[in-house]
């Protein structure tokens, strides 16, 4: 029973990673860049929900929608200001800029809202679920997190495969130059990708903080990096891959926390990344890419 409880909590944490990883994987697939600042958008989303809902007493739905809007705007702005001018520059330059943006968000948040931890109240106000006559208790946050990430993943797959902007995204990801020749607005599609990714990060932020209610300016950094690990694990560029990678990573992290060591759980997660990259660099569900000279 204990094991089941750890497992369910692992799946819930994994669902948050999955939501963040979806943003990573889409941006990586389309803009071909590692958006290091993605994790910090979670933190910004968390603060928006905190001020609107926990302090302002706003309706939780409205607060989350507000956070999505704010993060979407932030994501698009970051892309336009910091990343767009570097299109065509070496990937090292783009990566360093992304690290700069990540630091900018963290330290900006520290100056604005101080580094003092804020305690977050859960946006979910449902009773916990009792199974097996109360032996296994699953909190409502856990269930909502898992449900939300499944719904979002299905919606994203539908969006990418069945709609015109989705097809345009696939085209840009396949060959940016050719997509442009076909009349696709490449800049618009990249902005759209950043917008979707950032919006998902806001939802992830609200859900993450509902389960782990300490909000500091660096809240998003670790989950962000772990979500990237998840995206690589599942195969970067693949939406079901990001989801699968996220869930597996959450389970690995929670079980190692429970059975091996709390302090070493992060080390184990990173070890997974290294092993995956060495054994199967394209990830679980990724496509193998060949480099043409």
């Amino acid at each position: 029973m204990q094991f089941l409880s750890y497992l369910v909590r692992g799946i819930s944490l994994g669902s948050v990673y999955a939501l963040i990883a979806l943003g990573y994987t889409m941006v990586y697939g389309i803009a071909k860049m590692l958006n290091f600042a993605h994790g910090d958008i979670i933190m910004v989303g968390g603060y928006v929900v905190f001020f609107a809902f926990c302090q302002g007493g706003m309706n939780p739905w409205l607060a989350v929608i507000l956070a999505i809007a704010a993060c979407t705007l932030l994501g698009i702005t970051i892309e336009k200001v910091a990343y767009k001018p570097l299109r065509g520059a070496p990937s090292l330059a783009v990566l360093i800029t992304a690290i700069g943006v990540s630091y900018f968000l963290q330290n900006g948040a520290m100056l604005l809202w101080s580094s003092e931890p804020k305690s977050f109240t859960s946006v979910v106000s449902l009773p916990a679920l009792n199974l097996f006559g109360g032996k296994l208790q699953i909190s409502a946050e856990t269930l909502v997190t898992i449900a939300a990430s499944v719904v979002i993943m299905v919606a994203l797959i539908w969006f990418v495969n069945k709609t015109r902007p989705g097809h345009a995204m696939q085209a840009v990801s396949e060959d940016r130059g050719a997509a442009q020749l076909m009349g696709i607005n490449v800049n618009g599609i990249i902005s759209l990708t950043f917008a979707i990714g950032s919006g998902l990060a806001a939802i992830a932020g609200a859900l993450l903080l509902s389960s782990y209610p300490t909000l500091v300016p660096t809240t998003g950094a670790m989950p962000g990096i772990k979500a990237f690990v998840a995206a690589v694990f599942g195969g970067i560029g693949s939406i079901p891959g990001a989801f699968l990678g996220g869930i597996l990573l959450g389970i690995i992290e929670n079980l190692s926390k429970a059975y091996i060591s709390t302090q070493l759980s992060d080390a184990i997660v990173f070890l997974v990344l290294i092993v995956v990259l060495l054994v199967k660099p394209s990830g679980l569900l990724g496509k193998k890419q060949t480099v043409k000279v």
Binding site: P85, L86, R87, P90, V94, G100, V101, Y103, F104, L111
Partner: peptide
Amino acid sequence: SQYRMFIYSIVLIVMMLFNRAPAF
């Protein structure tokens, strides 16, 4: 010191844009 990392982040972004952005 409070502003140090904040300024560092701007330094990173601006230096990269200035040195590596094709337009610049």
